[in-house]
Simulated assay, not measured.
Amino acid sequence: MEWIKLRSLRSTPWALLFTVAGMITIGVVTMANTEAPGSAAKAAALDPTNNVLAGVALGQLVIGILAVLAVTGEYASGSIRSTLAAIPDRRLVLAAKATVLGATSLVVGEVIAFVTFFAGRAALSEAVTDVVPAPALDQPGVLRAVVLSGIYLALIALIGVGLGALTRHTAGGTAAFAGVTFVLPAVLSGLTGITIAKFFPTMIVANSLAVARPVDDMLSPWTGLAVLCGYTAAVLAAGGWLLARRDA
């Protein structure tokens, strides 16, 4: 039932198409504009893999809002009453939504991540590759960065589902999602540096998951993934608990 709902909405294919086009375009443009490092220190710090995956920030915004809408849209239209009449167990309804959104986002995210990687790699100029080898999947950390970028989009979708269940309101859910992923990390970075901001999703993907080379003072890729999984489980659990105690 949830799969039929998702694929029958006009917003779903358009949102996914925008995600695909946006991530690939950003990856290609970023790589095409990557300049050759002028010193050995800059060459050692350059991470082309991180550059090509820069579009994940756009992808998480679209996927996250789509996931929020998958929950709040039913409350806005009133169709949630029909859903709960057919399936009274609200936790089961939330689990079904999370499964469909998570699986769809995982498949789409992995496909986009790999396509973006190869398209962006081809756009890297010879001036750069003469100094730094073009990223390849057999290089240390590269395959892991690409795969975890796709997994990240699936986790973001699950967080969006949880926030939608917590708020049951499109504007509130979208604001909460934007606050957690973009606003709070930016504010905290300005106030406290990376001490706290490095534990937020956007900072984790930009500096931990989607990197082939470790970034100083940031979480390791696997620690970052564990933190994101913890966030996801907590938000979904809270959303399920609150949803079970509310009237439709």
Rank of each mutant, 00 (worst) to 15 (best):
M1I: 09
M1C: 10
K5G: 03
R7M: 12
R7F: 11
S8E: 12
R10Y: 08
S11K: 07
T12H: 07
T12Q: 05
L16K: 04
L16C: 01
V20Y: 13
M23A: 13
I24H: 10
I26S: 05
V28I: 12
V29T: 15
V29S: 15
M31T: 04
A32C: 06
T34W: 04
P37S: 06
K42C: 14
K42I: 08
A43M: 04
A43I: 07
A43Y: 01
A44Y: 09
A45T: 04
P48N: 06
N50C: 13
N51F: 12
G55L: 04
L58K: 06
G59F: 03
L61V: 13
I65T: 14
I65R: 09
A67G: 05
A70M: 12
A70I: 05
V71F: 00
G73I: 02
G73T: 07
A76L: 11
A76N: 14
S77C: 02
G78R: 06
G78H: 08
I80Q: 10
S82T: 07
T83N: 09
L84H: 11
L84K: 10
A85Y: 05
A85S: 15
A86F: 03
I87H: 15
I87D: 15
R90W: 01
R91T: 13
R91Y: 07
R91V: 13
L92G: 15
A95T: 11
A96I: 02
A96L: 03
K97F: 00
V100M: 08
L101P: 15
A103L: 11
A103P: 13
L106S: 10
L106N: 13
V107M: 10
V107R: 10
V107L: 12
V108W: 07
A113G: 11
A113C: 06
V115M: 06
V115T: 10
T116I: 09
F118V: 06
L124R: 03
S125K: 01
V131I: 10
V132M: 07
P133R: 08
A134C: 08
P135D: 00
L137F: 12
P140F: 05
G141F: 01
G141R: 06
L143T: 14
A145N: 02
V146H: 09
V147Y: 13
L155R: 03
I156W: 13
L163A: 08
G164Q: 00
R168A: 14
H169V: 15
A171G: 15
G173C: 05
T174G: 11
A176Q: 06
F182P: 12
V183K: 12
L184R: 05
P185H: 00
G190F: 01
L191Q: 07
T192N: 15
I194T: 14
F199S: 08
P201A: 09
T202D: 14
I204H: 00
V205E: 14
L209H: 01
P214N: 03
V215A: 11
D216K: 13
D217Y: 13
L219I: 10
S220L: 09
S220H: 09
W222T: 11
L225I: 04
V227Q: 02
L228G: 07
L228T: 08
C229M: 11
T232M: 01
V235H: 06
V235A: 05
L236R: 00
L236Y: 01
A237Q: 02
G239Y: 01
G240N: 00
G240D: 03
W241M: 07
W241S: 03
L242E: 11
R245W: 03
R246L: 09
R246S: 07
